[in-house]
């Protein structure tokens, strides 16, 4: 029974990745749509990370952009200033993001901070990161940002190749997510999400598993942040700001469904379409994000996956 289930999950996963892999064939000629498709994958990967951190262990990290950005900036700045290979600096960036996320999680679990205080602390960190990047002008070029064209790995230079590179990251993160959830840690996450106190009393090391989730999620955020830095050819504080990352990821995850394997993918795809629809409206998009977020939080808290499960009566991972 269990084995069949896992097999079904893998089939679903393979199908999703196959569909995503076919996207460039459909839109390959248009640079604009290739960029949109790649961006969609980036946000899907962010959402998978946030799903692990928030969806499963209820740690409201409002510093997703800051974590991704710290990795991106660490990697880019080291590559430029020390002339290191990006293959070396990307892991360093990822490690710094993972370390930061792990420390936040450890400290907040140890101090017994409620979900709201974790939110505030990480929000404050977001602001600190934003101001640090603005202020450390010699390193980061402040608001102007840094050109990263030609710096990164060769694979991130052409549009189709970078699409597949990011897709590889997404696929790997989904597989990792699946493996994580079927392992011991997955059961622990489930118990923590249901009732933290009961989980603690049942002998689950809540601190360890929360820190584990935060570290893995942050490492994934860092990976995507660094890859994005080289892919986009340009980074600035705005690229990693609260509006451009955290809000979008929150909406994506809520839309797709928290705590599900395919929620981030579905949410990301729907959001990408939606975003393109409102793009002609110009600056209206912030308004749309805000309204969408309120509507989702209030009426649609379980997301698309849960809705599809109900309507189609099939098991969706």
């Amino acid at each position: 029974m269990n084995r069949e289930r896992h097999l079904a999950d893998y089939v679903a996963l393979a199908a999703v990745v196959a569909v995503l892999a076919l996207v460039p064939l459909a839109v390959g000629d248009s640079a604009h749509f290739m960029r949109l498709a790649t961006l969609m994958l980036v946000y899907i990967a962010y959402a998978v990370a946030f799903n692990i951190i928030f969806g499963h262990t209820r740690q409201l990290f409002l510093c997703l952009g800051a974590l991704a950005g710290s990795s991106g900036y660490v990697s880019v700045v080291l590559t430029i200033k020390l002339g290191l290979s990006p293959w070396l600096t990307i892991p360093l960036g990822v490690a710094s993001a993972a370390l930061l996320g792990g420390v936040f999680s450890y400290v907040s679990v140890r101090r017994g901070l409620g979900v709201i205080f974790v939110g505030i602390v990480t929000l404050v960190f977001s602001l600190i990161f934003h101001n640090l990047v603005l202020g450390l002008r010699e390193l980061t070029n402040g608001e102007t940002g840094i050109e990263t064209k030609g710096l990164g790995p060769a694979v991130l230079q052409s549009a189709p190749a970078s699409y597949y590179a990011v897709l590889a990251v997404v696929a790997a993160s989904l597989v990792m997510y699946h493996l994580l959830m079927r392992s011991r840690a997955g059961k622990a996450f489930q118990a923590i999400a249901d009732d933290e106190l009961a989980a603690e009393l049942a002998g689950i090391d809540v601190t360890f598993y929360k820190v584990l989730a935060a570290t893995i999620g942050s490492a994934l955020l860092g990976t995507v942040g660094a890859v994005y830095a080289y892919y986009s050819g340009f980074i600035s504080p705005t690229v990693y700001s609260l509006v451009s990352v955290d809000i979008v990821v929150l909406v994506t995850l809520l839309l797709g469904g928290m705590g599900t394997l395919l929620g981030p993918v579905l949410g990301g795809a729907v959001f990408a379409v939606l975003d393109e629809v409102v793009r002609p409206l110009g600056r209206l998009n912030v308004l749309v994000y805000g309204v969408l977020m309120i509507v989702l939080v209030v009426t649609f808290r379980h997301g698309l996956v849960a809705m599809l499960r109900k309507v189609l009566r099939v098991r969706i991972p």
Partner: peptide
């Protein structure tokens, strides 16, 4: 309890962006 805190936080966060967007527009 916790659920109210979380919901309130997310709603007001969304509201802040909606208001920003509206005023900007």
């Amino acid at each position: 309890g916790e659920e109210r805190l979380l919901l309130g936080l997310l709603i007001t966060l969304g509201l802040s962006f909606a208001v920003n967007g509206f005023l900007d527009l």
